[in-house]
Simulated assay, not measured.
Amino acid sequence: MAAHEDLHAFLSKDPAQHGSPIATLFGSTSYKATLHYRLAHALMTCAKLDAAARHELEACAWLVSHRGKLLSGAEIHPGCDIGQRFILDHGWGTVIGETSVIGNDCYLLGGVTLGATGIANNTSMKRHPTLGDRVQIGAFSRIFGDIHIGDDVFVGAHCTVTQSIMPNSTVTLRSKMQIIRTRASSTPT
């Protein structure tokens, strides 16, 4: 059911799909990433099973997850939690870490990283971001750590976020040129 809702959300928000569910299902690598995540996540989080059966399903989940990465270029950990109607558009290079939580109706562009703050020796505790509902993240943005991005937040392209963001906020990157002009214009002549 979730994959079906993802497909219809993708069709309604991306005009390049021309409203064709079949073309999107077979042709969109971004949708394939989401579809593979949904299947891998279902396998990873199956009802309580004995240890041997659970390990077999986890191995299958990893196979599905890796296939999705090969087809789409997006690495979505099967253990993360993604809400309904998720859209990953131009997903190549996207990484969504294991303890990430993504709310409903979120839209991510390619190259986004939802990662931990450390490189090695990270704890097994919650270490990735939590996104609220209707969050939009621009291409190549990086959100690191166990932080919260509130509902209806827009994060522009190429931003690096390491602190929680309040709901209904916009985060953008100011270019170096703008900062230089701002400083220069405030200097008395």
Rank of each mutant, 00 (worst) to 15 (best):
D14F: 07
E56I: 14
M166K: 14
S169D: 11
T170W: 06
C46Q: 13
V64Y: 03
L131S: 09
T189N: 14
R174N: 11
M44Y: 10
A3W: 10
V112K: 02
P15Q: 10
A74C: 00
L114W: 07
Q136V: 04
G79Y: 00
A33C: 08
S141V: 04
T170D: 05
G118Q: 09
V171R: 12
H18M: 08
N104P: 01
S175A: 08
T113A: 11
Q17L: 13
L43F: 13
N121R: 07
T99N: 04
Q136A: 13
Y31T: 02
I76G: 01
V153S: 02
D152I: 11
I96D: 05
Y37E: 02
H66Y: 11
D133R: 08
G68I: 00
H66W: 04
L71C: 14
G19P: 01
F144V: 13
I149N: 00
R181S: 10
L43V: 05
A59N: 08
D151Q: 03
I147F: 14
T29K: 02
V155A: 12
A139L: 06
G145R: 01
P21C: 06
T117D: 06
S65R: 12
Q17F: 07
A52I: 10
A53V: 12
D6T: 06
D105F: 03
E58C: 09
Y37I: 02
G91V: 00
F10I: 08
S164R: 10
A16R: 07
G73P: 01
A3K: 10
M1Q: 14
P21V: 05
T182R: 15
L109W: 13
M44F: 11
A184Y: 08
I22L: 14
G79M: 02
N104G: 05
Q136P: 10
G73C: 12
A51L: 11
T160Q: 09
T113I: 14
W62P: 07
T94F: 02
R142K: 08
R54I: 05
N121C: 12
N168I: 01
D151L: 09
I180T: 13
L173E: 02
H8Y: 14
P78I: 04
P21H: 00
I76W: 02
H148F: 10
A16I: 12
I119K: 12
M125W: 13
L35E: 03
G156V: 00
K126A: 13
G91R: 01
G91H: 00
A3T: 12
A9P: 05
M166E: 11
P78S: 06
T189S: 15
T24L: 06
V64C: 03
G118V: 03
C159I: 12
A23C: 11
T123E: 14
V153I: 04
